[in-house]
Design a protein around this nucleic acid. Structure first.
Lengths: 230, 230
DNA sequence: AAAAGTAATTATGAATTCAATATTAACAGG
DNA sequence: CCTGTTAATATTGAATTCATAATTACTTTT
């Protein structure tokens, strides 16, 4: 049975603001003006402020008491920490997937994998990454653990805006493809320990972190304004 | 530098409602009346509704469009999934802790450990569990990964209300203490792989899950009302 | 009496209004 | 010209009000 999709104004607004952040239309550290966004979206402050609270809980923005909100500044450490976590979660998803996945689902992933290999041989980076993403998503779904999926998606969202893999060297790419070959073999053997290990070590994450090392503006500014929800 | 503590009305209300849920004053599946809680806390609907949205994001309650909110019903599967995740996160925390922890911090944990052993030998279950909790918290803190800590704490909060370990058998207890002995040894050797493995396999989680199997009312009712934030 | 349909009531969703806090601007003194 | 103080402005925090959807109570009909 398909679940009912909740479409509240606040959720709509939260998603739209999330998009603005992802696409860089709201910059890291930028102060978020309630009035401005209200006019942009054509809603009153009530649903907008609800959205801000939700986004703060999801880790995309920070709330400064009596001083509004601002987009979370992604320091290198924060991104690194998030990727460490995502690697652990991917590892778990692999272990669980081995226990639950059906032959049919494995076949579907094998198809995605072959398609991904095609794009790899044609050096189509963009298409490659899309297939790559679909494979990881399929494994996550096969884990049958909804809490895990929710957490992973939340973390993924937090770092989405710094996810562009320009500096992909051929060596890295080759290794990533080898990893994937091993992954799908482990999956077909349903070797949960092995798949978990591969996914935890999979350099996709580490590559991105390495790539990002030079990208992120790590100026660590006005930290005296930092606030924690308590 | 100590961080500024945010104390907004909505956050206060959210915490108070969280306490009500934890202590069973709001039952699983129970409909949450806005008016009632407004009167109870002496606040208007605005901050209360903001709190509800945050609690929904944190996974403690569900929002039913145009039909208010209700406390999330903890099915056995949901608890099991959450514990699987927490075990993975504890494993990661152990690995990271080995890399960052100072000799002084290890000594502090050793002290906690010894104190825990005392309570074990005196069969003081309550005091034992408090020390146990402190040890795991110390390792988590030593991981130096704030995102990890945030996620772990959120998961912990979700299952807090079903955390009472009555049916602790002596055999389980003995094993748990052995695990802890191995844990602290691995920590002192800074063997991250080993500590990670121990924590992932640590039966504390599994014990609780096993204990809960008989406790949780898994009636799986009116699921047609189920809603997902989208 | 049971079921279905309609009116009344209640609760939620969202906009508006009021109050408190922070930011900016103006000004005086050094 | 710079610094510190105070007044004006703007923004956020919270309560209230209005609108809309859901629930309940009450008819009406079979």
């Amino acid at each position: 049975m398909t679940k009912i999709l909740q479409r509240n104004l606040y959720r709509e607004v939260a998603d739209r603001i999330g998009d603005l952040i992802e696409h860089g239309e709201l910059s890291p550290g930028e102060r978020i003006s309630e009035k401005q966004l209200c006019e942009k979206f054509g809603v009153s402050r009530t649903p907008l402020r609800e959205a801000l609270k939700v986004l703060a809980t999801e880790g995309l923005i920070e709330l400064l008491p009596n001083r509004g909100a601002r987009v979370v500044r992604l320091t290198f450490k924060k991104v690194k920490d998030t990727y460490d976590l995502m690697a652990a979660l991917e590892g778990l998803s692999g272990e669980l997937a081995c226990k639950h996945i059906t032959d049919k689902e494995i076949a579907a992933i094998r198809t995605l994998h072959n398609s991904m290999l095609d794009h790899y041989h044609q050096h189509d980076l963009k298409a490659y990454f899309e297939l790559n993403r679909q494979i990881h998503e399929s494994i996550l779904a096969a884990s049958q653990n909804e809490v895990l999926q929710e957490m992973y998606n939340n973390l993924s969202q937090r770092v989405k805006r710094v996810r562009y893999s320009k500096k992909m060297t051929q060596a890295f790419w080759d290794q990533a493809v080898k990893d994937h070959e091993n992954m799908i073999n482990a999956l077909e053997k349903r070797d949960s320990q092995l798949l978990g290990q591969i996914l935890r070590d999979h350099l996709c994450n580490k590559l991105e972190v390495a790539t990002l090392a030079g990208v992120i503006e790590d100026d660590a500014p006005d930290e005296e304004h930092s606030v924690v929800n308590a």
